[in-house]
Design a protein around this nucleic acid. Structure first.
Lengths: 250, 250
DNA sequence: CAGTGGTCTAGACCACCAC
DNA sequence: TGGTGGTCTAGACCACTGC
């Protein structure tokens, strides 16, 4: 290596990144194997492996064990928080709005729809007072790549006999069904955090444990300021841009 | 180690996390040294080091080279995007709103205020057409810990003789000064991404290269939909929660 | 079965810090 | 000067893949 001031694995990571950008390693193709790279660069395999670890954390490459390390293509999906709910009246589920705008095939897989004890945080927001909740948990895909997990909670007593118990909630999405129940949400708040995924999230999303995810806590309120649903979105950070817009209240 | 199914360094990382949570290693104290831990756990130092790497990426510990590895306390700061601008009329700069709510001492350090060639992205948004921009770049602290970098761009021709050339822009902050110039912003849009920090950001924020940062692109628009300023906020992910709220346009 | 990445070790040298 | 973490190596064994 040339620069003695920087560690070798950092320089190698930058070298690999350059080669990905300039097309030496095109998207979808495999990196040379670690022993090959070690030979080419005159370092040990451990050092090469440490460099590759960096590219994995950023989502630039994906490892298929036993097979090789492959360059990912990284189309960013924009999630416009305000617009996606506004469009729900067109009959498109909010979850599909973003993906279909990119000419990707959208698909939703339902993990569980049913009664659960809500986590304390959710119970507090929804003022469940010991009551249970309806959970709708699902995994969303774009072209068969998992793009997010979503876990929605509603008061069980309110929703147990509603279409929210079905996978397909019908025109206008879940918020339209809440409106049918006279608790249509009109105000929303989202808290955005970034963290490392849990083992389960890592598996369901097909990402590395070092890749950060957005965790969005979305709360919907009725006109009289009552929280009527809570949804957590878990989204791989490298896939998404979150967009918010608002006007001055004055 | 007990579990043969999981790698040792992962188990060690979890062990250390448990010990931090249960108070064996209280906040502010040092972890046992890597050779000590290696001895205690019967593994090589490299393996311990790899485990510590995980805690560093999450911001749970901070390494002071030559001195030791220390447990961080992690108070989360909430940045309420809508409220922070609403409060600017009280005379508090938007940058200080969040931090002072937590009883932390807020401080702003100005890195540069002056004329620059704007990046293409900024030039496009502000429609500079080859003109230059005024940049106000600064670093914000809470109790002497860097909490964010902010880079604001304004059209140079418009602002070159305004108070925006000073460090202290006066009551109401920079947006009040734009209002004085008849281009008061009334609409805002933010794009949120998460990524790894650049070397410069890593240094200025005192974080690891593996710790993800929020990058917020904040654009302010006048009543006639003209973009009048662009600000980039770079914020260590482990320190912040971003909050947004809005009402249904209907 | 050969090739891939995952992991681990023992030993080494270095830069940096506190005393 | 001794202890800390940063980095690197050569060699090893493993699980998994694809032929």
């Amino acid at each position: 290596m040339i620069e003695p001031s920087k560690s070798q694995y950092l320089q190698i990571a930058e070298l690999l990144q350059r080669r990905i950008v300039d097309g030496t390693y095109p998207a979808g193709s495999a990196l040379p194997s670690e022993p090959e790279l070690a030979q080419e660069l005159g370092v040990s395999r451990v050092t090469v492996n440490k460099a590759v670890t960096i590219l994995r954390a950023t989502g630039e490459v994906r490892v298929r064990r036993g097979s090789g390390t492959f360059i990912r293509s990284l189309p960013k999906i924009t999630r416009d928080a305000v617009a996606r709910f506004a469009r729900r009246n067109e009959g498109v589920g909010a979850g599909e709005v973003e993906v279909e705008g990119l000419n990707l095939r959208s698909r939703t897989e339902y993990l569980k729809i049913g009664r659960v004890d809500a986590p304390d945080l959710v119970a507090g927001i929804l003022r469940l007072d010991g009551d249970q909740a309806l959970i709708r948990s699902r995994r969303l895909f774009a072209d068969d790549e998992p793009t997010q997990l979503a876990y929605s909670y509603y008061p069980w007593a309110l929703t147990k006999d509603s279409p929210l118990m079905q996978t397909d909630v019908g025109m206008g999405g879940s918020y339209a069904r809440l409106a049918d129940l006279d608790v249509g949400p009109v105000k929303f708040a989202e808290d955005v955090n970034v963290r490392t995924p849990t083992d389960e999230e890592r598996q369901l999303l097909g990402i590395e444990s070092t890749q950060p995810v957005f965790e969005i806590k979305h709360v919907a309120y009725t006109a009289d300021d009552r929280a009527i649903s809570v949804t957590f979105h878990i989204m791989p950070g490298h896939l998404w841009t979150l967009r918010y817009s608002w006007s001055d209240p004055a």
